[in-house]
Design a protein around this nucleic acid. Structure first.
Length: 695
RNA sequence: GGUGAGGUAGCUCAGUCGGCUAGAGCGGGGGUCUCAUAAUCCCCAGGUCGGGAGUUCGAUUCUCCCCCUCACCA
């Protein structure tokens, strides 16, 4: 048994949880549940990241104190996670007394090692708002390509990165007034000192800490280690620097955020843990944090914050006499329908939107798991793939297997056993369990899901081949059914970290307990099985259900917020990804975009001019519905004899929002090519019935 | 421009420490059973493994060059 402290990155307490956050927390939750299923002692620490300029500014806009603002978001975030079955042991905050003490402890340790020095920095300053302006708080014209309205760090048009002082016509985003250049003294950590660089490099290169691809990335950074600025000017929401050398300064949010892992753990063990798990802060440190502590420290993060975690963080821990992480799992970003999440396209999906759509949270957990590997590659939530994946894997394969076998077993009079369970099923189970166990340990969740499907397919095939419905009580048939019932127990065990509710219900339906997953676990224990209740069902998804995710996201625009990532002029790195550039209106669209347009064949029943309008015709069109539709179209100039249109088969946009034209509500739109008077309606032959979908 | 990661069937990906007819799932096409959620099961993809050159008896897998995508950085 291994004792572990696992963390996931701390969501910023500036907004709601979206599906991008969910990737990370699902991945971590699955990992933690797996570790517990093999008997490890795991504590999962998370918290809300409560400090920094954006929270200070947005709280000010909302008219509440920053602490209150962050706390409200923290609570909401915590509730959202719980609704997805994400079971952090604690979801604390970085704005805590414990974190303050830890931040000072680490600052003091850096100082005591002589790693902190003072440097004067020139930055843009807004005299009206009386604040230094982080990169994202300045907008101006790109010095290279002259695109207006660019932030202070990078031009979205030409990709050039620059110093905010280089911007032409810079303006403070808060008041739009031009800023001035002013200098300020800041604390920097010197990471180039040989003893520090050696620590970082040693940590990066050691086996097991990082995936090879990630390690390569980090090694590239090590060649050019920059000093790291760890203070910010007032006004700021954070901890004041506890050092007379830097009066009036605050600790940078990125210093105290990862420290939040340590302090939230301390709070958990001291105040939140069940009584038998309580630890004093001293005992907690000795067991989990100190150099040489027996427990493993493992972080799950997104690739956007890798630099902080893989370069700065080991140095900070070392300076304070604490152990470095034993493993850092780095995942990629979520895209939706192949693009970066975008609010204007409806692909910026909040976790709450998913919940409101009525979709089971476990389905999303499954989809993410089915597409996650241990590496940092991005993961795409294509609605089409989501639906196919759920329907094919869960509904048709696994859940249907449980359902059909339960029905067959219930035809027997009592519990079913077999001295010779179907050998093909038996060997499939014995093969799958250790492979799945290894895949979980390597965080190859995609592989786990593949193994589950493969095993369920073998079972379905054996049912098909042995036709137990013809003689349900025959020994050969029972050998198959019994073996599959046990296989379903194995499937429940394999799926339990991903689908905890479904797996528990499945095992329970067959009266099979979910055991601790030992390496030698063999489910064929000879115990007969009896179905206790109907196995859990998974309803097939249709397109409409899934599309709700995007349509309801599009209808709920969120007020613009200032994103975290506020770095001062020295370019310490960005905390969050840049906002996605909005795609052009006539860009390439995805199939789903096209599929949202419902084109149908319509038969023209009547056509007449609209009074007092020289361009409009009013048509009555049969699109295969009980009542014909009234459609008003601007085609009168092209069709001076409206009656000639009667009987034609035209193409209608059937799901366009109704719109009144000259007092008549038009219930659709016709497809036509050209400009009046040289315009023709798009028609199809009479062999195609009204109502036929055009695609 | 530098660094890193990629470019394999319509889609998502696996794989080859160089070698028999390059794989899986999904989607699509055809057939089948009826225990089960219109579920299952069977058959069907002829993909220049980004392009070019080299090493080799043999390269998709190694080397070099080039093109493209993504990320980070200057």
């Amino acid at each position: 048994m291994t004792t572990r402290l696992v963390t996931s990155a701390l969501p910023y307490a500036n907004g709601s949880i979206h599906l991008g956050h969910m990737v990370e927390h699902v991945q971590t939750d699955v990992y933690v549940r797996y570790l517990r299923s093999i008997g490890d002692d795991v504590t999962w620490i998370c918290a809300a990241d409560a400090h920094g300029t954006p929270i200070e500014v947005n709280a000010g806009k909302a008219g509440v104190p920053p602490a209150q603002f962050a706390e409200a978001h923290r609570q909401e975030q915590h509730r959202t996670f719980q609704a997805f079955g994400i079971a952090h042991d604690t979801y604390y905050t970085t704005d805590s007394p414990e974190n303050r003490a830890w931040a000072y402890r680490i600052y003091d340790a850096l100082k005591a090692r002589g790693l902190i020095h003072k440097r004067s920095v020139e930055q843009l300053y807004c005299e009206h708002d009386q604040r230094f302006l982080p990169d994202r708080f300045v907008k101006g014209t790109c010095p290279k390509c002259a695109t207006p309205e660019q932030y202070g760090d990078v031009c979205e048009k030409c990709g050039t990165t620059y110093d905010p002082r280089e911007l032409k016509d810079p303006a403070c985003v808060l008041c739009m007034r031009p800023p001035v250049v002013r200098s300020s003294d800041h604390a920097y950590v010197n990471l180039r000192r040989p003893e520090v660089a050696a620590i970082i490099q040693g940590w990066v290169e050691a086996e097991g800490h990082l995936e090879p691809a990630v390690r390569q990335q980090v090694k590239g950074w090590l060649a050019d280690l920059q000093d790291w600025c760890i203070t910010r000017d007032a006004p700021y929401f954070g901890f004041p620097v506890n050092d007379a050398d830097f009066p009036g300064k605050f600790l940078y949010v990125w210093l105290d955020a990862p420290i939040g892992y340590l302090s939230s753990g301390e709070h958990y063990f001291a105040a939140e843990a069940p009584p038998e798990r309580r630890l004093t802060p001293e005992a907690y440190r000795a067991r989990y944090l100190d150099e040489g502590a027996p427990a493993r420290l493992e972080h799950v993060i997104g690739k956007d914050i890798l630099r902080f975690h893989a370069v700065f963080w080991p140095a900070m821990l070392w300076a304070a006499g604490l152990k470095r992480p034993d493993r850092m799992v780095v995942h990629g970003h979520l895209t939706v329908n192949g693009e970066k999440m975008s609010k204007s396209r409806g692909t910026f999906i909040n976790a709450s939107t998913y919940l409101e759509s009525g979709l089971d949270p476990e389905l999303l957990r499954y989809f993410f798991a089915a597409n996650l590997s241990a590496g940092p590659s991005d993961l795409d939530l294509s609605l089409e793939e989501f639906r196919n994946r759920i329907n094919a894997d869960l509904a048709n394969n696994v859940a249907n297997l449980a359902s059909r076998v339960a029905a067959l077993l219930q035809r027997a009079t009592g519990p079913v056993g077999s001295a010779a369970p179907d050998p093909e099923v038996v060997s499939a189970v014995r093969e799958a369990l250790p492979l799945a166990r290894r895949a979980y340990g390597e965080l190859q969740l995609r592989e786990v899901v593949r193994l589950v499907s493969q095993l369920a397919s073998v079972c379905n095939r054996r049912v098909q081949e042995s036709k137990p419905w013809e003689n349900p009580t025959g020994p050969a048939e029972q050998a198959v059914l019994y073996a599959i019932a046990k296989a379903l127990g194995a499937l429940a065990l394999m799926l339990q970290p991903i689908l905890p509710r479904f797996a528990a219900a499945l095992a329970n339906a067959y009266g099979l307990p979910l055991p601790t997953w030992t390496e030698w676990l063999d489910p064929f224990d000879g115990q007969p099985v009896a179905v206790r209740e109907k196995p859990p069902q998974i309803a097939r998804l249709d397109q409409k259900q899934v599309e709700k995710l995007i349509t309801s996201s599009a209808e709920a625009p969120k007020p613009a917020k200032v994103a975290k990532g506020a770095s001062p002029a020295e370019g310490a790195g960005k905390a969050t990804a840049k906002p996605a550039a909005e795609p052009p209106v006539f860009g390439v669209i995805q199939y789903e975009d096209f599929a949202r347009v419902e084109l149908r064949v319509g038969a023209v029943l009547s056509a007449a001019r609209v009074e007092k309008a020289d361009k409009l015709l009013q048509l009555s069109v049969d699109v295969g519905e009980p009542a014909p539709r009234t459609i008003v179209a601007g085609i009168a100039q092209a069709y001076p004899e409206p009656a000639a249109l009667v009987g034609k088969r035209i193409v209608v946009v059937a799901n366009l929002a109704p719109r009144p034209l000259r007092g008549i509500t038009s219930q659709g739109m016709l497809l036509a090519a050209g400009e009046p008077p040289n315009l023709q309606l798009v028609t199809v032959g009479e062999a195609i019935a009204p109502g036929t979908r055009v695609k």
